[in-house]
Deep mutational scan, measured.
Amino acid sequence: NQASVVANQLIPINTALTLVMMRSEVVTPVGIPAEDIPRLVSMQVNRAVPLGTTLMPDMVRGYA
């Protein structure tokens, strides 16, 4: 089972991601792999991401 990136807090739209906003968790469906967390830092979300939501590739500008 692969860990995915999950929002550690509410992340408002257009917010640049920081390490404290994300955690890794084994979830279904699988989202962005946890090993990509360092790559996600400073990328912006293109929608509001509620606490506990799995980050999907289409939620992060420039990721996919």
Results as ranks from 00 to 15, higher is better:
V60K: 00
L10H: 11
G52M: 05
A16L: 11
A64E: 13
A48V: 11
V30R: 13
T18G: 06
N1V: 15
I32P: 00
V27R: 14
D58V: 09
A16K: 07
R39E: 07
R23H: 10
T28G: 07
M59G: 03
T28D: 12
V26C: 03
L19I: 14
V20Q: 12
L17Y: 00
Q9K: 06
V60Q: 00
Y63E: 04
V26A: 07
L51G: 13
S42M: 14
R23I: 09
P33N: 12
T18F: 03
P29A: 05
N46F: 05
V30P: 12
L55G: 01
N1D: 09
L19W: 13
A48M: 10
T28V: 12
S4M: 02
L51Q: 15
L51N: 15
R39M: 14
M22V: 11
T53S: 15
T54K: 04
V5K: 01
G52V: 02
L17P: 02
S24R: 12
T53H: 10
L55F: 10
T54Q: 04
Q9S: 09
V30S: 13
V26L: 12
P33E: 05
V60Y: 01
V49P: 02
Q2N: 11
S42E: 13
I32D: 00
P57G: 11
N8L: 07
R61E: 14
P12I: 06
Q44S: 11
S24I: 12
L55M: 13
I13V: 14
L51K: 11
M22E: 00
M56W: 06
E35T: 14
I11E: 00
G62P: 06
N14E: 13
P50T: 13
I37H: 03
T54E: 01
P50K: 06
A34L: 05
A48S: 07
P38Y: 08
T54I: 09
V27W: 02
M56C: 03
M56V: 13
L40S: 00
P38V: 09
G52W: 05
N14V: 03
P29I: 05
L17S: 00
M43T: 05
S24E: 12
I37M: 13
L51V: 09
V26E: 07
V5C: 04
M21R: 03
A7D: 01
T53I: 09
P50Q: 06
G52P: 00
N46K: 10
P12Q: 11
G52I: 02
D36I: 06
S4H: 02
R47H: 10
T54L: 05
P50Y: 08
L10C: 04
D58S: 10
M59D: 15
T53P: 00
T54V: 11
D58M: 08
T18C: 04
V20E: 13
T18H: 04
N8E: 11
I37S: 05
T28S: 15
A34M: 13
L19M: 09
V60I: 15
I37D: 01
S42R: 12
R39T: 10
A16G: 10
R39Y: 09
V60L: 11
V30F: 11
V60H: 01
S24K: 06
R47E: 09
V27G: 04
Q2I: 14
V5S: 03
V27S: 07
P29T: 06
I32L: 06
M43H: 10
M43D: 03
Y63F: 13
A16Q: 06
M22K: 00
D58N: 09
P57W: 07
D58L: 15
G62W: 06
I13E: 12
M21N: 10
A64M: 07
I37T: 08
V26I: 12
I11S: 00
T54C: 03
N1W: 10
I11M: 05
L51C: 03
N1I: 15
Y63W: 15
P50A: 08
S42H: 12
E25Q: 15
E25W: 08
Q44G: 05
V60P: 00
M59Q: 05
R23E: 05
V49D: 02
I11W: 01
V5H: 01
Q9Y: 13
P33Y: 08
V60W: 02
V20K: 11
M22Y: 02
V30K: 13
R47V: 12
E25Y: 11
M59P: 01
A48K: 14
T54R: 04
V49I: 14
G52H: 11
A64W: 03
V45Y: 00
A3L: 13
Q44F: 08
Q2D: 14
Y63T: 05
A7Y: 01
P12A: 10
A3T: 12
I37G: 05
V5E: 01
Y63Q: 04
A7W: 02
E35K: 12
A64G: 12
R39F: 11
A3S: 09
G62I: 04
S42I: 03
V41Y: 06
V45S: 07
A3F: 14
E25G: 09
V41H: 04
M21K: 03
A16C: 03
M43A: 09
D58E: 08
L40Q: 00
L55Q: 00
V45D: 01
P12E: 15
V5N: 00
M59N: 06
I32M: 04
V60T: 02
L40V: 07
I13W: 09
T18E: 07
A64S: 13
E25P: 01
V27T: 11
L19T: 11
V20S: 13
P50N: 14
S4L: 00
E35D: 08
P57F: 06
V27P: 01
I32R: 01
T18K: 10
I13M: 09
I32C: 03
L10I: 11
I11V: 08
V41I: 15
A64Y: 05
V6L: 07
M21S: 05
G52Q: 05
R39L: 09
A64R: 03
L51H: 12
M22F: 08
G62L: 07
L19Q: 13
V6R: 04
M21L: 07
P50L: 08
V49A: 08
L19F: 08
R23L: 05
R47N: 11
G62F: 07
R61Y: 07
P38L: 08
P57Y: 10
L51F: 11
V6C: 03
S42V: 03
M43V: 05
S4T: 04
N1H: 12
T54D: 01
R61I: 15
P38N: 11
P50C: 04
P33I: 11
D58T: 12
P50G: 14
G52S: 13
V20R: 07
G62S: 08
E25N: 07
T54G: 03
M43K: 14
S42C: 03
A64H: 06
N1M: 15
T18P: 00
T18Q: 07
T54H: 03
V6M: 06
N46M: 12
S42L: 15
V20L: 07
R61D: 13
L17A: 00
V41E: 10
T15P: 00
L40F: 02
